[in-house]
Amino acid sequence: MNSFNRAIPTEHIHPAVELEARQLVAGHGDKVIIDGLDLNLPTGKITAIVGPNGCGKSTLLNSLARTLKPLGGSILLDGQDIHRLPGRDVARKLALLPQETSAPEGMSVEDLVRFGRQPHQSWLSQWSPDDQRAVKRAIKAADLTGMENRMLEELSGGQRQRAWIAMAVAQDTPSLLLDEPTSALDLGHQLEVFELIRHLSADHGKTIVMVVHDLLSACRFADHLVAMHDGRLITQGAPGQVLTPELVHQLYGVHCDILPDPVTGSPMLINMHRASKNPRQAPAKAPISGDNDE
């Protein structure tokens, strides 16, 4: 179907940006969800934020993306408080794909992707050949060449999501934040989007941070896993190293065993069951020890 393993357009590799959270307190209204979180995101890598529903992963992402103002602490972009920087400057370094996207009926793929150039335009500099090239490049990166004039509502879910990612790519930023980019997609379309994300990281050198609902996809496609529970950072690191049965239990209350995928080598969860439901099969494990929880 779609493979993104084409010749590498090396012309657009960005200088890295540093994105970090310092003692972040975040929430909605006066409801604090994240209370004092420190996080340094590896540059040039794909980071997946995982955790159970309501653990604060979207809150964290939206704080990083500047769309949610912290209640305390700060988000630093290249060492500067992201909320003190002009919106345009931030939008030239960070692109965001929100969780729920909607475009008006009758908008074409190219119309959508062109929006990505807004941070680069101003009163004086209107649409330029540079903008046009960036749009073309983004459409090509998302493998949508030839579909520029198609209406968004005519596309499949996966294609539409790729068009939105192309908009973020046209923003030409060193980093890209995605909030559950595959949540409404079926298996094939999920792969389509994850492969595009890998392509953007490997070939365009983007720093990518995404909230991912599905733990296995996160392990498969991310270089760096950030596990959250109840608004706190539980652990982070390479998926193969940090994903343990203890972690899965701590995050989701699920017992399981972990095997490496014989083909890709990424961790797989097997023999999953809830703690209390199935005592007969519950493996006799030592109680969780030495973890920083409780």
């Binding site: 692109a95 965001l96 969780q99 475009a103 929006f115 923003q171």
Partner: peptide
């Protein structure tokens, strides 16, 4: 006009493009 047009993509998308 330009930021207003981007509001058609939703609140967060417009913010992501650097608008208020």
């Amino acid at each position: 006009i330009r930021p207003l047009a981007s509001l058609a993509l939703g609140e967060r998308a417009a913010q992501g493009l650097g608008h208020h």
